[in-house]
Design a binder for these strands. Structure first.
Length: 278
DNA sequence: ACGAGGTCCTGCGAGC
DNA sequence: TGCTCGCAGGACCTCG
């Protein structure tokens, strides 16, 4: 499920193929992913539009058009974005949501099996308010421990839920929240405002290192995620806790626990490494 | 301010 | 074999 490292990988793969290119004959196969725009208006805006640049914000792919508007695609669970250099076969077209001809035999395709993903088309003002609602980028140079502490320590929510709150911090989803809390040896259910400065420091380091390592590995493929070139990521073999409930902790050998007690999401942790360290 | 639960959406695996 | 059911879950919503 594309979180920050996965979307970063997609953007790095797509950027060389999309930057400076033009959308020809855009086709929208499913309209229920659209937010705040009709299919008719989206297609009119994309037809013949030149892509100025492609970037990432949190878990969103942002294509800035020469018109100044931004095509913002959030893949969520099962979305994938690719540039194909051959016509799509039947299987490749099956879940296509949006596609466009880029010329030179290349095609851009956003596909999404479950279609929990979203597409926005935002002008400058709408983009400003959109991005302002999202928290700071954890891999930015100026994202320090004090910033993390300030963002997370104003709530009594479980630290794991707070970490995944996109308004507080950008790009962390279920996989990397589990992994970061394990690395920081923190109980995922601890109220965020009760964490000490020292613990927040560990969490800051853990969040940044796990995200950076996952970017290097081109993301985590558990099931659906594919890179911008259609291949799997490699970070799944490096996961310490996510998806490993019942298996031994890599640190102490204790059987890992999975609960759904926090926000009804799968949380896997080692009660020994993470449970008792207050 | 917080938790609980519903909503979107489809594929997949378990159970009968 | 063929059906139903619950689950996967990010972001958003309402309700109490």
């Amino acid at each position: 499920m594309p979180e920050l490292p996965e979307v970063e990988t997609i953007v790095r793969d797509l950027a060389p193929h999309l930057t400076g290119r033009t959308f020809h004959h855009p086709q929208l196969h499913k309209a229920d992913v659209l937010r705040g725009i009709t299919a008719r208006r989206l297609l009119r805006a994309l037809r013949g539009a030149r892509i100025a640049d492609v970037s990432r914000r949190a878990k969103h792919v942002v294509m800035r058009l020469a018109s100044g508007s931004r095509l913002v695609i959030q893949p969520r669970m099962t979305g994938s974005l690719r540039v194909h250099d051959a016509p799509l076969d039947r299987a490749e077209r099956r879940y296509a949501v949006l596609e466009a001809d880029l010329g030179r035999g290349e095609r851009f395709v956003y596909r999404d099996v479950r279609r929990l993903g979203t597409i926005h088309l935002l002008d400058e003002a709408a983009w400003s308010s959109y991005t302002a609602r999202i928290g700071p980028e954890p891999l930015a140079d100026d994202f320090d421990a004090a910033t993390l502490a300030a963002r997370l320590s104003d709530t009594r929510q479980a630290i794991k839920k707070a970490l995944m709150d996109q308004r507080k911090l950008a790009g962390v989803g279920n996989i990397y929240a589990n992994e970061a809390l394990f690395r920081a040896r923190l109980d995922p259910s601890r109220p965020a405002h009760r964490l000490t400065r020292r613990e927040l420091g560990r969490l800051h380091t853990a969040v940044r290192t796990v995200l950076a390592e996952a970017v290097t590995a081109r993301g985590t493929t558990v099931r659906d995620y594919r890179t911008g070139t259609g291949g799997p990521g490699a970070f799944q073999v490096a996961l310490d806790v996510y998806g490993r409930g019942g298996e031994p902790c890599r640190r102490c050998g204790t059987r890992l626990t999975t609960t759904h007690a926090i926000d009804a999401r799968a949380t896997t942790f080692c009660w020994r490494c993470q449970g008792a360290c207050a």
